[in-house]
Amino acid sequence: MNQEDIIDLGRLLSIIVDKKKVVISIIAVCTAIAAAVSCTLPKEYISQTTVQVMGIDMVISGKTTDSNIVSDMELLRSNEVLNPVWEQVFCDLEPENRPGIESFAKNYISVTNVKGTQLIKISAKGRTPQEAQYIAENVAQNFMELKNKAVEENKAMIGSVFDEKIQFAVKEADNATATLEKYVAEHGHSADTLEYKRLSREVDAKNVAYEALVVQAEKAKIQQSGNFIQVMDPANMPDENNPSGPKKKLLVAIGFVIGCLISLGYGLVLYKKKA
């Protein structure tokens, strides 16, 4: 390292002190600009609501599972849930001045999971307390309606599948019984013959398969009816006198730090000139 590359901190500090009026002016201007910007930025308010998605397994055992929580959170951020809210919230703005749906999802909506639970917290940002509450409330409502619709469709699909399987099982059992009855009619009650025993076992197997399907279908109905969503914490109305943003103190602090950095740079420039 060259000797001239080494900075004498004492000398640098002396230069800054000598130019303290300029340094203080730079810091004051940067801080004032930051304060002015913080005052011109629009106010922001945040409303929160919490929903719980439960399944029959949780109702019975009390245990939580996160198997579907990720997909539920993605559903909450989907256009299908957000679009109706987005259209209503920004209807007062010209189309070219409205944020896009992607920007709305990213900057106005926050969706988080309370770890180890089936609770999903929705935080909504708005330009007014009423708007923030409206967004949180309606995003939760749209999500619940969409989720319940999906549950009903899934229930109908599962019911249809089991109905087809049960009808087939009934047909198989009836055919096996008819075959056995035909054999008995032709050969009498020859219970000791191998063919009679085989046909009897087939009838029993078909009946067992049918009964098992009926049990499975009933269990599936119980599981589907046990899925439900409820609002744990309704969307709150933020205090109009206590906005969540802009963070004025933080912005002023950032302006002060920037002023200090510019002043340091100014001091370094003077230091190099006098070197």
Results as ranks from 00 to 15, higher is better:
105 A>I: 14
40 T>Y: 05
80 E>G: 10
233 D>F: 05
196 Y>V: 10
137 E>C: 12
120 I>S: 03
256 F>S: 01
80 E>K: 11
128 T>I: 08
244 S>A: 13
71 S>H: 06
248 K>L: 05
71 S>Y: 08
226 G>C: 00
2 N>I: 14
206 K>G: 01
40 T>A: 11
172 E>N: 13
228 F>K: 00
69 I>H: 05
162 F>N: 02
152 E>M: 08
143 F>A: 04
262 I>C: 05
128 T>K: 02
141 Q>M: 15
154 N>I: 08
260 C>H: 01
231 V>I: 15
167 Q>N: 14
182 K>Q: 14
87 E>W: 05
50 T>L: 09
125 K>A: 03
48 Q>D: 11
182 K>F: 09
222 I>Y: 04
18 D>I: 01
267 G>A: 03
240 E>A: 07
91 C>M: 15
101 I>F: 04
126 G>Q: 00
228 F>Q: 03
215 V>C: 00
272 K>L: 11
215 V>Q: 05
128 T>E: 07
65 T>V: 11
171 K>R: 14
106 K>C: 02
118 Q>T: 06
189 H>D: 10
219 K>W: 06
71 S>I: 10
25 S>H: 06
85 V>Q: 02
22 V>R: 06
119 L>V: 11
103 S>M: 05
194 L>F: 13
77 R>W: 12
27 I>F: 04
155 K>M: 10
32 A>V: 09
157 M>V: 06
1 M>N: 08
217 A>W: 02
3 Q>C: 07
126 G>R: 02
88 Q>H: 10
96 E>P: 00
158 I>S: 02
216 Q>F: 06
72 D>T: 12
22 V>M: 01
210 Y>M: 12
48 Q>V: 14
226 G>S: 00
39 C>Q: 14
115 K>V: 10
163 D>L: 12
233 D>L: 08
268 L>D: 04
158 I>K: 03
206 K>Q: 14
192 D>A: 14
16 I>Q: 01
108 Y>S: 11
57 D>V: 09
96 E>K: 09
109 I>Y: 11
88 Q>N: 12
166 I>P: 03
138 N>Q: 15
63 K>L: 11
18 D>M: 01
70 V>G: 06
209 A>D: 05
83 N>D: 04
13 L>P: 10
